[in-house]
Structures are given as C-alpha cells and as structure tokens.
Design a protein around this nucleic acid. Structure first.
Lengths: 132, 132
DNA sequence: GGAACCTTGACACGACCGTGCTAACGTCCC
DNA sequence: GGGACGTTAGCACGGTCGTGTCAAGGTTCC
C-alpha cells in the first residue's frame, strides 16, 4: 500500500505484515524465525518489529537456502550453534572425523549398499531386504 | 554370558544384544543409529549385525557426545551431511557469516536480551515482555 | 527339533518442528 | 474514537525424533 511505501521511504523499516508480503514468509513464520534466533529485527519503542533492508535480504536468502537444500530452520540453527560453541564443534567434528567403523572386512557389495543407505540422509525408502 | 565372550574371542564381533549390553544403548537404538548412518556395522552372511571393537568404541563416544552437549542424532547426522555435501556447507556457512542483521541501531539492551534468547538454542522460556 | 537369538515391519507415544488460526489486548493514525 | 494493524498466548495438526514393544519369520546351536 501507499502507507507502507511512505513509511519505507521515511523510516526505512517495515512491519511484520509488510515484511511478510515482500519476503514470502507469513507473519507467523517471521515471528517463529525470530524465535529461532535466525533473523531478529529490532523493535520500535512500543514493541513493533522493524524489518529493515538487511533483515529483508536475510529473510530472502534464508528462504533460498532452505529451498535449495533439504534443511529446516532447526538445522541451520544447529549450524549456528556449531559456530558459537567451539566446544561443541570440536567434539562433533572429532567424532565425525573418526572414519566411522573402517569398512575393511565389509564384503564390498554390502558396503555399497549401506553406503547408499547412508546417503539417504536419514530414514526414507526401506527396500534393503537382507538377502535372507 | 560365556557364549558371547567365547564368540568375542574367536570372531571378534558382537551381536546387537551383546553390543547393547556393553554400550548402554538398546538394541532398538543400535538399529536406529545404523539407520541414521552414524554407526553401521558389517553383517554376517545371514544378515546379523556384527559389532567389532571399532563400532563399540564409536557407540560409546557417540553417547558421550550426545550427553555432553544438548544434541540429538539428527543434529550430528546433519553435521555429517555438512561435511559430505560441500555445496550445503558453503551455503549454510555463507548465510551465517552474513553477521545477521547488523545490530547497529539496536538499543544495546534489547540486543543483549535477544542475544541471550538466541542462546536458548530454540524456543524455551518466554518471559521477554516487550517493554510495553 | 526346540530354545534363544537374529532380522524386518508396524503400532504407539510424548516431545518438538513448521504452520495456521483465534483470542485478548495495545498502537497508529485519520 | 474507531478501524486497521501490532503484540503475545494458545489450540490444532501432520510430520519427524527417540524410544519401547510386539509380531512374523530366519539362524544358531545344543
């Protein structure tokens, strides 16, 4: 609307609904995203969220990020944790670096089978049927 | 039991139940963990899971990892994804590096408030009460 | 050949994720 | 002062996570 355009020109900040309109997120999700600590807009004196150009950009790229790869807000929230908690990052990376159960005595075709299964990031299609 | 000890000495591999007993996980969880691609033991000709020393060690350290920090299997599964999918890692790290909505015009105490909120990894205690 | 184990598959369940909607109440602005 | 909008809190709902349990069927081994 004209009002929003006017305010944008003057105060350089949008309200939730306006930000929602220009980013494709719903107001509900904008609050949720804030809650997850991913995009936290400043507030007006009376508590209104004020989305500036920076936040809008961030929201759009966030959407692209989620759409591109199959990830959720929780996941990138976790990634964020990994950078702010070096303690955590060290342990997790350390564990993952331990070359998971070195596959030396694996029959080679079995290896291949579970290797593919592993690439289906988590549970998905079951079909393995254990050769019985 | 004696049986398991005997087999361990000879074939160097434990069955699910035995592995469960020595690692503290339940058999159910061992299968779940395998499904998540975190610890995948080789199989016997007839399909039995064979947990060797490497897997057992891995299972114990995994437990420590989860207990130490507040993380779940899904999370470290995601961390694993980050290392095997550089495409993903690049995008996520890139997004996080964008110093989230530079807090220049934030009233400094507000900043502090949402900064702490962010550290409650995701939703938790609500109390903020927006200064109204 | 039978007991004790293994396998997969499924139901169940509480907790959280992602989302929408409604309620109750404050703010903005004409 | 009233309407359009903001704020939070809450219910709801399908989906996933982390678990347990139980069923149906193969294996091991005495």
């Amino acid at each position: 609307m004209l009002t929003s355009l006017a305010r944008m020109a003057t105060t350089e900040a949008l309200t939730v609904q306006e930000a929602a309109d220009t980013t494709g997120w719903s107001p509900r999700m904008l609050r949720y995203i804030e809650r997850a600590g991913l995009v936290v807009p400043p507030r007006s004196a009376s508590g209104y969220r004020l989305y500036g150009a920076a936040e809008l950009q961030r929201l759009r790229t966030l959407r692209e990020l989620l759409d591109a790869h199959d990830v959720g807000l929780a996941e990138i929230g976790f990634a964020s944790r990994m950078r702010t908690e070096p303690h955590l990052a060290r342990d997790v990376d350390g564990w993952l670096s331990a070359t998971a159960t070195r596959p030396a005595e694996v029959p080679a075709d079995d290896w291949l089978r579970w290797e593919q299964a592993k690439h289906t990031r988590l549970l998905q299609h079951p079909e393995p049927t254990p050769t019985n």
